[in-house]
Design a protein around this nucleic acid. Structure first.
Lengths: 336, 336
DNA sequence: AGCGGGGAGCAAACCGATTTGCCTCAGTCG
DNA sequence: CGACTGAGGCAAATCGGTTTGCTCCCCGCT
């Protein structure tokens, strides 16, 4: 029983019929993988024009095992760091790759789900920015042979995959020494969730250590990577019996939140509280007073990730995992 | 559970063989579309576990004609309005739809290319924010039956598709009357490229008209929808023989650029130049002085678009194209 | 004359699922 | 007792391409 469906899609078989050749020949005209005589080719091409034929991407991908799609698994596209990274990624892997974005909100179950889903969809590659996922988790879900590039350093020394990250440790160290150079001795830090610490915390600790300042564990608090997250963390710090006079924040959003909190408590910045952020998002230059921060090259990070990923996807490179470290610079503005 | 060294993917046929049933039965266990006896089902399920079988999304999509993917075609994800919209979109169409984002940078050829590509990839739906694309262009490239939801109003009165947009005309009117309420008579406007004008310009003109102020065409200039774009436009306005004392900018990014330009010329805001933006992006509240602007509900816009799109994709709604208009409010801060 | 090679084209297998149609075997209803 | 129904299962068609093998023919070399 034939169902009278909506206007049937034009398939390669239709083209073949109209041009009076086999499907094979049409395919070869399209791909150029085998020679086709000029007159035949012309017949096929007119048939294609005439019918308005467009090859079906799904069918093609099924056979060729290439989807020309990559997944970008990140915490939150709403964090202004990531849109830039996303564009860098697209520019980095030239040649018709589309990106679909998975916002995990930092939940590792969602990250895991996404990876599985993306694997099922047969993405050609994955760019993953996760604070929690170790190589074992990834391997459990991503079929071997599917290229993965990692972003960020929070899961340190993961030798399984290509990685591109900023020199967080150095940046954090620089930020902290800068604060101490301004005379501060009680320097706090607001870091990300999960208490894992991470390179930014390492740099902070090393700077304190080198300056011979004892680390007060009370001065290091965790919070969500968001503006409100920074605000609550800052309130905790400022509520201490002996509060810090300066705070290094592991990202700009949290630093902005800290500014909100400080202002809410009637403190003036930088007189009563000095602040350094991390990332140098656009907003950092626009707040008042403009935020001193550490640059984190979002676009370039994406770009490099794109290059590494494409080299893997095309098979152009098959060697051992590579790590690219991008520099961080202190951007001195008015909150210190 | 078990890691496979075998390069071969586990298919439904493998599962069928191990469970000693037909592929059909495995499929029915998975989909539940036909009953399967309990013991059989159990055999199949253990086989699935044992082999670590995961259905191939491509093959499935090819047959079912559903990809559970939608395309979001926008000018630039780097514009902070769009990440929010993107998340709203995901939340709006509940149920496992993935979004892939196409940055057109406002070039209509790229928009066209993206639409075609996305159609070839058999996306289940498209959300399109384009200033230039008319219904005819879309129809030329998108197969009929493929749901499209439009965002924004710049291409006015396009009856072909569901649309969700902010009440731009009203917002712009409100912004302009607000400026005139502060005593300004020479009120300029910085609008988007293409000179098309658009609803925001309409509201501006209507406000002037109602106040009995003659429109000086010199006071309306076009620029890119970016911060630098706003800066160059503002410099043109401020270089006039009789420059405006207030400017309404068609988006916040341009307003920020105008602030840059004004500051570069030694003007103080709002004393020497009053400014109103549009969109109320996060940065608007953070600049100094904080920007007076018109709210544009990015997240809600995406959310509504998601709802409309899902209703079309699932076939839940088949009626005539709908239009949703979201309200705009003036957010008064310190640049007026 | 025999052989290798390449141009040109076709039929059929393949990618990995879903869906249709058909068969068998109870059990139920009239 | 025959008709009908629903559970349970299988083989084969389908989705729309690409790729493999094979044939046929013509050409240039030894």
């Amino acid at each position: 029983m034939k169902r009278f469906a909506s206007p049937q899609r034009v398939t390669i078989a239709d083209v073949a019929r109209v041009a009076d050749v086999s499907k094979t020949t049409v395919s070869h005209v399209l791909s150029g993988k085998r020679p086709v005589a000029l007159p035949t080719r012309a017949r096929v091409e007119t048939a294609i024009q005439e019918l308005g034929y467009r090859p079906d991407g799904l069918a093609r991908s099924l056979r060729t095992r290439r989807t020309h799609m990559v997944a970008l698994v990140i915490p939150d596209i709403t964090n202004p760091y990531y849109p830039l990274l996303a564009r860098g990624l697209e520019d980095g892997m030239v040649g018709g790759y589309r990106t679909f974005i998975c916002n995990s909100d930092g939940h590792s179950e969602r990250e895991q789900e996404f990876l599985a889903e993306v694997a099922d969809r047969r993405a050609d590659g994955i760019v993953l920015d996760s604070f929690t996922m170790g190589a074992d988790w990834i391997e459990a879900v991503v079929p071997e042979g599917m290229p993965v590039v990692r972003i960020g350093t929070t899961v340190a020394d993961d030798p399984g995959y290509d990685t591109v990250h900023a020199d967080d440790e150095h940046g954090a160290h620089r930020a902290t020494t800068h604060l101490m150079g301004k005379g501060h001795r009680r320097v706090g830090m607001i870091q990300g969730p999960a208490g894992a610490g991470g390179k930014r915390n390492d740099g902070y600790l090393r700077a304190l250590h080198e300056a011979g300042v004892a680390v007060d564990p009370e001065l290091v608090v965790s919070g969500e990577w968001t503006r409100p997250g920074g605000a609550v963390a800052a309130r905790r710090l400022l509520g201490l019996a002996d509060p810090p006079t300066a705070v290094f924040c592991a990202n700009d959003l949290m630093a902005l939140g800290a500014m909100d909190a400080a202002r809410g408590l009637g403190l003036e910045i930088p007189r009563d509280l000095a602040l350094v952020g991390f990332d140098d998002i656009e907003a950092a230059a626009m707040v008042s007073p403009p935020l001193t921060t550490v640059s984190n090259l979002a676009y370039e990070t994406g770009l490099m990730a794109g290059v590494l990923l494409r080299e893997r996807m095309t098979g152009q490179f098959r060697g051992a995992p590579r790590t690219v470290t991008l520099p961080c610079k202190l951007v001195e503005r008015a909150t210190t």
